[in-house]
Design a protein around this nucleic acid. Sequence first.
DNA 1: CCACAATTTTTCAGTGACTACAAATTTGGT
DNA 2: ACCAAATTTGTAGTCACTGAAAAATTGTGG
Lengths: 217, 217
Amino acid sequence: MTAMAEELSLRERKKRETRQRISDAAMGLFMRHGFDKVTVAEVARAADVSVNTVFNYFKTKEELFLDRRDTAEEFLAELVRNRAPGVSAVRAIRDDFLDAVRTRHWRYGFNPGADWWHQMVADSPALTAAVTRLHEARQEKLAAALADEADADPDDLTPRLVAAQICATLIVLTEQAHRRRRAGEAWEDILADTEKKAERAFDLLEHGIGDYPERVR
Amino acid sequence: MTAMAEELSLRERKKRETRQRISDAAMGLFMRHGFDKVTVAEVARAADVSVNTVFNYFKTKEELFLDRRDTAEEFLAELVRNRAPGVSAVRAIRDDFLDAVRTRHWRYGFNPGADWWHQMVADSPALTAAVTRLHEARQEKLAAALADEADADPDDLTPRLVAAQICATLIVLTEQAHRRRRAGEAWEDILADTEKKAERAFDLLEHGIGDYPERVR
DNA sequence: CCACAATTTTTCAGTGACTACAAATTTGGT
DNA sequence: ACCAAATTTGTAGTCACTGAAAAATTGTGG
């Protein structure tokens, strides 16, 4: 037993290498030809493994694409749990979102390289569905975190409702940005505008949609 | 030309018959064995047509299940367009929803027979994804209607945000009801409670989620 | 270093949704 | 009855994904 706790067995190392090789091969092909145009068999050949080995590491073809999921599920929940004392959940997320827009950070998909990723997702119904499931998972974790923080009854719908509305707002904001990007608008212009739009969106979230569209707000 | 305008040609009648026969056969099998356990080939055999004919009428297997889609896409949009003068969009939908809960109407899935339908959707990831797409379509139509009513700029996000929040609320409310149903609770109990929960949910929607969970509301 | 167990990979042989296309059938009109 | 158009069917295939047994690889104890 020469291996220390941190060292990995040969087996474990090989497994990671294989997984990485498959993921890399897949990403390369996806970037060149698009998700739907690449077959799992082609990925397998490029990674020099059998098709079954691919499915051994990735349950579905979509998982190959979402392997390095920029969409950490726990992300929003953590944000709420770690917020400064006296700060509301919406405020914490609001501030974080605006900061991400201003710094073009990837955590909400506002980095320059995120373009082709969203383009690819938009082009594939299968991927879109998979991403939607990720969003749902993210929303559920947020709801759980909110329920904890408010220490609400299990049958209190409020945390679920709040989580749903926060996530809905975030999705509308990011979707809008990427829709405009796909339409050819300049990233910088979009982001500058998104910053203003986000302020408005979070105000709406905090203060309610009231009697829209009866009264001009 | 003996046919009057209202009469359908033999061809048209046969097509409708065939479509109906396929849909009926599919539903019968789905109800007996579950969506995932039934193959399109079995549906075709039960309807006494070829597999290709099934796909001639229904683009996907999911469409077979959603044929009589209780989820009319224009529904919420129409509600907003036809609301009484002086009534806000949220109010119109709130009143309609509460009415539906009280009268156990199917339009939000609150009829006694809706149980197995939601059970079946919950059991099949493919169906869940398809229903999610329907919800998205419904949300977009609502957003369009709201944009019209408010006569907003095309780049004003407000109608989209309002639509997203309304739909998110409706989904949380209905999901909750059906989750409890699947857990075995009595339909009547759930509905009575949903009525109260809905009031709370729409208040939140109208007045904002504020600084939840800092302050007990 | 060898035998043996555990794990991983491959091979083989499916299933099932869905597609393209040509041939066969049915219907509409004359 | 005949022709053209629409509908249905058969044939053959692609692709994601599954199951199970054989084959290769790695860990382990002697």
